[in-house]
Design a protein around this nucleic acid. Structure first.
Length: 737
DNA sequence: GTTAGGG
DNA sequence: CCCTAAC
């Protein structure tokens, strides 16, 4: 059937909170939360290739989204800013509605329209694009609003903007300029900028973007680029030129082909497409508290409804590994909960936080564990997933789906954010009772999370460039699609959807698609051995979670946890655009984008700075590692354990290990001890209360018998080291008799 | 490095 | 499984 897509690039930036500019640190960390695109596709039930190249699908207009749905905005420190955004949102929404009927199905072809004001910029894309604007404010949960299909032609928006007080304009402008826009959306953005920049006298000029058609990547505004904005613009355009080109070709490919060929999509093309063709973007504006040194993922708050308003910060660390990737391990809410305690500690030092993190994790996990309600945002801590249930998105997707049939259909949407990789995907899955097909509506993909650290004195323009660089690097390095089902990564590409559990009857809400960076050299670092390598150092963390060790018989394993890219800009002279032929990012992608002319204001010394992985140097790798993957004991193992304990007793786990689990590297004696503990518990409870793979009652009986016996004979504490052997045959005989 | 226990 | 105190 037809394969249509709704593309939406969402760019998010974390802005420092101006109010808290008290910190001496001249560095700011920007977190690019996401660049999303939406894809709607229809997949054959039996195709488990996941090779659908949604990116190639033609862009279709998105249906308008009601602005009313926006959740109430939280009070911001900067009311003006809020107002501005709200205003924009409102306007956008209005425009959207108005233009709803005029949407075209092919976004690729943007029409040129005469400027609507002052004869300024003239080309205005006509296509409707969806503008998703996420707005994160300090201390508040993420507020998001979708502005579907904004008709650029509508000049009302312009007028309104223009009427805003200068302060507001500036705010808007700043934020707006931060948008990574493409295509049509860019136009809108641009026009607004033009209007606003009239009043801006000192910030330089706004580069006038030359309309390049639908493939524009969007301009990057650099207020400091007085001396050559145009040139900069050109460079930037060139930078993405190849990407755009690549896109074109792929875009034209009928989706059908991609879908039916069962061929994995060229990740690069996909990436490029997402980068260049994504219509528009939105921006996530987030504020960070500067007074808190330990950052905590803001998303966490959403998950737990935390009331703390100032914990927008999140822990992060920089890592130098062919591109600074951040090992993202402990970004869970517990972590946040302890923020108050560690707020004054070293910025990158989370040792304390980690402790707390672990301490709290369990409770939180318990709380979340069995809840799968459609809350706004939810996470699967065990897998570092953030699952968001976006009603808006859902409704939007539904209303925009090409097939009208979808309307009224019971559909659910859920997005899963892979915290470790920074990639996420929102999926809207619907089941079609006929044809044994499962329809997926991939609402969005996220590029890996980016952490960019720049000095406060850096210019917005430099920041933008860095973001662009980072994104380009990620995209250029290639991406691969991952399928996550219920927190587990489906790795077996040969499985059918049915086999993988992705079927009509399955809970598709828990299905997610993730874009995973696929750095060649990184992948080469993957641990060859099939070890329970959960505990690894930063370098390995890059992909440790993706190693084969995680692949289980079922073909499903925990999702990989790839850290995000991290960029750091420490140079106060960042204003000076330093053509960096070999920036960290460049080295990262290394060849991926040989033609890139990106400018990265990161001097060599900064590279070294980056090389220093804050966490790394101060903590043990294990501290950052994730909990080992759960490896349930098999009946065979239990049997071996029982037998060993029967003979050795319950106080010599090391011996038990050597005796019965010598070759089981993944079973430590502590594990055995713990298992015995649970076995005893299991044996003592009612069978109905037992979970997991059932252990033969016979074994459980032996467990109880041995436990009872050794409890009395206390072979523990090295009482009689040799007794076990001596009584090897007596204990069980006694008990069993 | 091991154990024992609490989490 | 994790974490730690106490060997």
């Amino acid at each position: 059937m037809g394969f249509s897509t709704v593309l939406c690039l969402v760019g998010s930036l974390v802005f420092p909170n101006p109010e808290n500019e008290q910190r001496k640190t001249s560095t700011r960390v920007y977190r690019i939360k996401s660049f999303n695109r939406q894809i709607v596709g229809d997949f054959n039930h039996y195709t488990a290739d996941y090779g659908f190249s949604g990116y190639r699908v033609p862009v279709i207009p998105r249906a308008p989204r009601s602005v009313r749905r926006r959740s109430p905005q939280k009070k911001l420190v900067e009311d003006s800013t809020i107002s501005a955004f709200e205003l924009l949102a409102a306007v956008a929404g209005k425009l959207l509605q108005e233009s709803e009927s005029s949407t075209s199905s092919n976004a690729a072809e943007a029409k040129v329209h005469p400027g609507f004001r002052d004869g300024k910029k003239t080309s205005l894309p006509e296509n409707d694009k969806a503008l998703k604007l996420k707005y994160f404010d300090q201390g508040s949960c993420a507020e998001s609003a979708f502005f579907p299909e904004i008709s650029v032609q509508d000049r009302n928006i312009l007028s309104i903007v223009k009427e805003l007080p200068r302060a507001e304009n500036d705010s808007i402008l700043d934020r707006t300029s931060a948008l990574v826009s493409c295509d049509l959306p860019t136009k809108v953005d641009y026009d607004m900028k033009l209007e606003m920049c009239k009043d801006k006298s000192s910030d330089g000029t706004f580069p006038c973007k030359v309309d390049g058609g639908s493939n524009d990547v969007g301009d990057i505004y650099d207020p400091k680029m007085d001396n050559g904005p145009e040139k900069q613009l050109v460079d930037e355009r060139e930078q993405v030129g190849d990407l755009t080109m690549a896109n074109k070709s792929s875009v034209k490919d009928p989706i059908k082909e991609c879908v039916n060929n069962n061929v994995l999509i060229n990740s690069e093309s996909s990436v490029q497409l997402s980068l260049c063709r994504d219509p528009i973007p939105g921006a996530l504006f987030q504020k960070r508290r500067n007074d808190v040194k330990l950052g905590i993922r803001d998303d966490d708050e959403n998950s737990f409804g935390c009331n703390k308003p100032c914990t927008k910060i999140r822990p992060f660390r920089l890592q130098l590994c062919n591109g600074y990737r951040r090992t993202r391990k402990m970004l869970t809410s517990k972590y946040r909960k302890v923020a108050p305690k560690i707020k004054d500690r070293e910025f990158y030092n989370y040792s304390e936080g980690m402790k707390s993190f672990y301490r709290y994790r369990k409770n939180i996990y318990k709380r979340e564990r069995f809840h799968w309600v459609p809350i706004k945002k939810r996470k699967l801590f065990d897998h570092s997933f953030e699952v968001a249930y976006d009603q808006e998105a859902s409704s939007e997707s539904v209303s925009n789906l090409p097939e009208k049939e979808m309307r009224g259909d019971k559909s659910s949407s859920a997005s899963i954010f892979h915290k470790e990789s920074g990639l996420s995907a929102s999926v809207k899955a619907r089941q079609k009772s006929k044809d044994s097909k499962v329809k997926f509506s991939i609402k969005s993909f996220r590029v890996p999370e980016l952490y960019i650290e720049v000095p406060e004195t850096a210019t917005v323009g430099s920041l933008k460039r860095m973001v662009m660089e980072a994104v380009t690097a990620i995209l250029g390095s290639g991406l691969q699609v991952g399928v996550v089902l219920q927190g587990k990564k489906v790795r077996d590409d040969n499985r059918t959807l049915q086999q993988a559990g992705i079927s009509q009857s399955s809970n598709l809400d828990s299905l997610g698609f993730a874009l995973e960076p696929s750095f060649a050299h990184v992948s080469g670092q993957r641990t060859p051995k099939d070890l329970p390598l959960v505990l690894r150092c930063d370098a390995d963390l890059l992909s440790s979670r993706s190693t084969a060790s995680q692949i289980f018989d079922s073909g499903v394993s925990n999702a990989s946890l790839d850290p995000p890219l991290v960029m750091k800009l420490d140079n106060d002279n960042s204003q000076e655009l330093i053509p960096s032929p070999k920036t960290p990012i460049d080295s990262l992608k290394d060849g991926a984008l040989p033609d890139s002319k990106a400018l990265i204001p990161v001097p060599p010394m900064n590279i070294e700075t980056l090389a220093v992985v804050p966490f790394n140097s101060k903590r043990k790798c294990n501290e950052l590692s994730q909990r080992r993957t759960r490896r349930p004991f098999s009946v065979t193992e239990v049997e071996a354990l029982v037998e060993a304990v029967e003979k050795l007793g319950t106080g010599r786990w090391r011996n038990v290990k050597m005796r019965a689990f010598e070759d089981a590297d993944h079973r430590t004696y502590v594990d055995l001890k713990d298992k015995w503990k649970t076995l005893v518990h299991t044996a003592s409870i009612a069978p109905q209360q037992r979970r997991g793979e059932p252990v033969p009652q016979e074994l459980l009986d032996r467990v109880l018998a041995a436990h009872g016996y050794w409890s009395q004979h206390q072979p523990k504490h090295g009482k009689h080291k040799d007794e076990p052997l001596q009584i090897t045959d007596s204990p069980m005989e006694m008990v069993g008799a």
